[in-house]
Design a protein around this nucleic acid. Sequence first.
DNA 1: GCTTGACAACTTAATATTGAAGTATTCGAC
DNA 2: GTCGAATACTTCAATATTAAGTTGTCAAGC
Lengths: 147, 147
Amino acid sequence: MGTKYQGTEEATRALDTYIKLMRASESLTHRIHRHLHDVDLTISQFGVLEALLHLGSLCQSELAHKLLRTGGNMTLVIDNLEKRDLVRRERSSIDRRFISVHLTEAGRTLIERIFPRHVEAVTQAMQRLTAEEQETLSNLCRKLGSP
Amino acid sequence: MGTKYQGTEEATRALDTYIKLMRASESLTHRIHRHLHDVDLTISQFGVLEALLHLGSLCQSELAHKLLRTGGNMTLVIDNLEKRDLVRRERSSIDRRFISVHLTEAGRTLIERIFPRHVEAVTQAMQRLTAEEQETLSNLCRKLGSP
DNA sequence: GCTTGACAACTTAATATTGAAGTATTCGAC
DNA sequence: GTCGAATACTTCAATATTAAGTTGTCAAGC
C-alpha cells in the first residue's frame, strides 16, 4: 500500500501509519460484523443494543457520546430499533428534556444471544496478534485516540 | 473505557484492543478531515480525488477496491464530484464495460491545493507517537488488516 | 454465429450520518 | 417571577453506504 506522496520522512511515515490504521479498522469492522446479517441488525443498531446491555439504560445523548455519533443520528437508529420492539423510550419525569432508552425483553434476548458471536469474532480476528502485541496496540491507540 | 464483559482473559483483551483501535481511527478521522469543511468536500470525495491524484485515472471498480467501498457507492460519490466538475467519466473504447474516472483541471487544482493540509493534519496527529512507535503501530495494523 | 457465464456499471430501497434549524424544557441571573 | 442561556431531542436536506437486482459488454465454448 503506502502513498505515492514525496515529502519529508516524518510526513511519509505519518501518512503511511495513518493509512494502515484506517485499513485495519475498516477491514476488521467488516469481518467482525458479518454475522449481524443473520439477525438483520446494522452495526449502529448493534452498538446501541450492546451499550444498553453492558451499561444499562442510557439517554440518547449519552448513547451518542459513547458511540461517537450525533444526536440526530441516535434519533433515527433508536427509531428503527423501537419499530422492531427491541428498545423502549421513556421520558424522564425528573427532567423532561431527557429520554432514557431501555432494552425490551425481546431486545435483551436478542443481544444476549448474539453478543457471544461478537466476542468470538473479535477474539478470532485478534488472534493474529500475540497477547503482548495486543497490549502494545492498545496503548498506542489510546495515545492516538485520546481527546 | 473498556467493556463490562466478563469472559476469558483472551476475549477480554481482544475486545479491549478492538475498541481502542476503533476509537483511535474514528477519533483521528474526525480530527484529520476537519479542514475539508472549508472546501465543502466529504471524506469520500476527498478519498476519490486523492486516489486519482496519486494513482492516476482509475475505473470505478478500482476506486471502490482502493477505498474499501461498494460499486454502488462509487457511482454516487463520482456523480456528486462530476456535478461540481471536479472529475470526468470516460467510457473505455477498448472494453466498453469500464468507465475511467479522470481529474478535471478544477479537480486537480483543488486536490493539489488541499492535499498539503491533509499531510499537515496527519503529521500533527501522529506526533503523539515517536517514529518507532509509528513503525510498530504500522506493523501491527498491517498484520490485522491484511486479508 | 449463438449461448452462457462473468463482470462492470447503474438503479433502487433502506438505513446511516452529519449539520443546521427548530421545539421543548430546565436553570440561573436579575 | 421573568428572561436568556444551555440542554435534549426532533426534523430536514444532503450525502453516504450497502445489498440486491438490472443492463450492457465481453469472452469462451459449442
